[in-house]
Amino acid sequence: MDRFLIRNNKKPNDGTQNSEPAPKKKKYDESSVKVRRYLSEYLGLGFSATKSDPVNAQCVLCGQVLANSSMKPAHMNWYCAPFSCRNCLEIAKVASVSSKALRASYAVSYLVAKQKKPHTIAECLILPALVKVSEIMFDTKTATALQSTPVSNNTISRRIEDIASDIVMQVIEQIKLTKMFALQLDESTDVSGEAQVIVFVRYQDCSDIRENILFCQNLQSRTTGEELFKVIDKFFAEGGILWDWCLSVCSDGAAALTGKNNGLMAWIRKKNPKVKWLHCIIHRQALPSKRMNAHLHKTLNEAVKVINFIEARPLNSRMFKLLRN
């Protein structure tokens, strides 16, 4: 047991003996640290600036703030181009959609728009029905692949807008090639009180005459001929369409459209005096009614009053059906 009682010959360092002092730490020399200055060119690399002092670079995709030592163009370019950042890479993987799923999304959106159905029908009915049919007819793997098709409400809305814009651009390109077209337009107020102008265009495509809707826009203020002309002329200016290519305009006999002084045709003829005006075939019955025989005209008015009375209320319509049966 004696060996356990043998003390170390070294004297304890209690602070009273001659112990070697601890080496002093070097003071932090702030002047030796190089602080990089944020440049506006870093926006091209995908980085915005923070409000801290000193200013650091912040990734615009994931929001991560880089250290001062990483604010080199080479480091920043490697960090975020293309999606080299770990956070951005995860976002890109989640947001990536296969080409087949993208084509399927556009195809479904086109069907929804063609059938004039609500945008939510794709997510609530079409996709679940496809998944269920695939599970029954094929296998679970096929049904799982179908679930990756983006058909949400906002997605369908964006797809329809893209399809509509592409169709309008194709029509504009055809008009520019032929440099001859005719317009058919009308202005009306819907049940919500919004004034809208809809314009159809007829042009020659190779050896065939085609007719497509050109645009439909709301009128912000009045429905005068001048306001109608401003809307159409703005669309023509943005699309690069010249009024000299317009051959004729078809509309009803409203004063805002056919007025000699302030009507739409008066403004159009200021741009192209050779434009011809045609009365719409749907409203042509209004023209002979103005010059009809007095007795026949009275009979026609009575018939119109009877029809308006029947269609004015649902009860009148139901009673008329019982009377007819």
Rank of each mutant, 00 (worst) to 15 (best):
residue 314 P to W: 11
residue 299 T to E: 10
residue 295 H to P: 01
residue 315 L to D: 02
residue 293 N to C: 08
residue 289 S to H: 05
residue 300 L to D: 00
residue 306 V to S: 05
residue 302 E to Q: 11
residue 305 K to C: 04
residue 311 E to I: 07
residue 299 T to K: 09
residue 309 F to L: 10
residue 307 I to V: 15
residue 305 K to Q: 04
residue 289 S to N: 08
residue 311 E to W: 09
residue 314 P to F: 07
residue 296 L to N: 03
residue 310 I to W: 02
residue 307 I to N: 04
residue 303 A to Y: 00
residue 297 H to K: 08
residue 290 K to F: 01
residue 302 E to A: 06
residue 313 R to I: 07
residue 315 L to T: 06
residue 315 L to Y: 01
residue 294 A to I: 14
residue 297 H to F: 04
residue 297 H to R: 10
residue 319 M to G: 03
residue 291 R to L: 05
residue 289 S to R: 04
residue 313 R to N: 15
residue 300 L to Q: 02
residue 313 R to F: 14
residue 314 P to D: 08
residue 306 V to T: 09
residue 310 I to K: 00
residue 318 R to M: 14
residue 317 S to M: 14
residue 292 M to E: 02
residue 310 I to L: 13
residue 289 S to E: 03
residue 291 R to D: 05
residue 289 S to L: 13
residue 319 M to S: 10
residue 315 L to C: 10
residue 314 P to H: 12
residue 309 F to M: 09
residue 312 A to N: 15
residue 289 S to F: 06
residue 299 T to C: 13
residue 291 R to G: 04
residue 304 V to P: 03
residue 298 K to Q: 12
residue 306 V to M: 08
residue 319 M to Q: 12
residue 300 L to S: 05
residue 309 F to I: 06
residue 308 N to Y: 01
residue 306 V to C: 11
residue 312 A to I: 07
residue 316 N to W: 00
residue 316 N to E: 04
residue 299 T to P: 01
residue 290 K to Q: 03
residue 295 H to V: 09
residue 311 E to K: 15
residue 289 S to V: 08
residue 306 V to L: 15
residue 313 R to C: 11
residue 306 V to F: 10
residue 305 K to H: 03
residue 307 I to A: 15
residue 306 V to G: 01
residue 313 R to V: 10
residue 308 N to P: 05
residue 312 A to P: 07
residue 297 H to T: 03
residue 303 A to N: 05
residue 301 N to G: 07
residue 295 H to T: 10
residue 298 K to L: 08
residue 295 H to D: 07
residue 309 F to Y: 15
residue 300 L to I: 09
residue 314 P to L: 06
residue 297 H to Y: 03
residue 294 A to H: 11
residue 291 R to K: 05
residue 313 R to G: 11
residue 318 R to H: 14
residue 301 N to V: 12
residue 299 T to Y: 09
residue 316 N to S: 15
residue 317 S to G: 06
residue 318 R to I: 12
residue 312 A to Q: 15
residue 299 T to G: 11
residue 306 V to E: 00
residue 300 L to N: 02
residue 316 N to H: 14
residue 314 P to S: 14
residue 300 L to W: 02
residue 312 A to D: 14
residue 318 R to F: 10
residue 303 A to G: 14
residue 289 S to P: 00
residue 302 E to P: 01
residue 301 N to E: 13
residue 316 N to R: 03
residue 311 E to Y: 13
residue 302 E to F: 05
residue 289 S to Y: 04
residue 298 K to S: 12
residue 308 N to W: 00
residue 294 A to V: 14
residue 291 R to F: 08
residue 292 M to G: 02
residue 301 N to C: 10
residue 315 L to G: 02
residue 317 S to F: 00
residue 306 V to W: 00
residue 303 A to V: 12
residue 314 P to I: 11
residue 294 A to S: 13
residue 296 L to V: 05
residue 313 R to L: 11
residue 289 S to A: 12
residue 301 N to Y: 03
residue 290 K to E: 00
residue 290 K to C: 02
residue 310 I to S: 02
residue 296 L to S: 07
residue 297 H to W: 00
residue 298 K to Y: 05
residue 296 L to A: 08
residue 319 M to C: 13
residue 304 V to H: 03
residue 305 K to R: 08
residue 294 A to T: 13
